[in-house]
Amino acid sequence: MPQIAQGRPSNDPLMVAEEWMKAGKDVAIATVVETWGSAPRPVGSHLVIDAEGRFEGSVSGGCVEGAVVAEAADVLADGKPRMLEFGVADETAWEVGLSCGGRIKVYVERLG
């Protein structure tokens, strides 16, 4: 008897990405690849985004998701992966509000 992810939440970002892909949607995958200091989400965490800006998962405690979703639109448009950095040391970080004092590096790529 198949027990596919039964009893687990259906909001697993990579499972959602596969469903979106099968439904013919364009999907971007963002992954935390490095952290320094008190980063809210560990290395390896995913946020997946579709072309309409819908997303699942997280790469921070909600501080930089908006900026990553915006960048994902560009990644989907030209297909080129991007490395994003957020931290309190630069001005962008204040704008998007990574207020916990940590720094994170997020890799954003297109699926397929």
Binding site: L14, A17, E18, T31, Y107, L111
Partner: peptide, 24 residues
């Protein structure tokens, strides 16, 4: 990410097998 890599990775996760995704 390669769609086949994503499918294979999710399959491993469903089957409770440890896996690593290596990205250059």
């Amino acid at each position: 990410m390669d769609p086949y890599a994503l499918k294979k990775l999710n399959q491993c996760r469903r089957e409770r097998r440890a896996a690593i995704l290596i990205t250059d």
